[in-house]
Amino acid sequence: MSLLAAILAGMFLAAGAIFVLIGSFGLWRLPDFYTRLHAAGITDTLGLSLMLVGMMFLGGWTLVTVKLVFIMLLILLTSPTATHAVANAAYTVGLRPFGVPPEDLAEKDR
């Protein structure tokens, strides 16, 4: 492995880990379920992609990299569906969002 690839891998891994940590911290810190969805989104998009790209630099041009690409595509395609499913389930049973102005909500939820 060349030095450049090692340095790039380290940078991407560090950035990814930082974004994963920020997302998890947000999941703890934000006030209600709907705002926490956005924090989970950080982990699922940028944190995950950066860490996997870092590992691709470690793997080089091998089948390992191909598998990492498949993992990344799979999660990027399924995570919005899972997030929407959780959000929609909460909205359907009428979980009240924090801090949203009342005119935004449907009649029954005000």
Partner: peptide, 12 residues
Amino acid sequence: MLAAATVGLLVA
């Protein structure tokens, strides 16, 4: 760096 990132992941 990978080990450090793994520790960060565990904390998260």
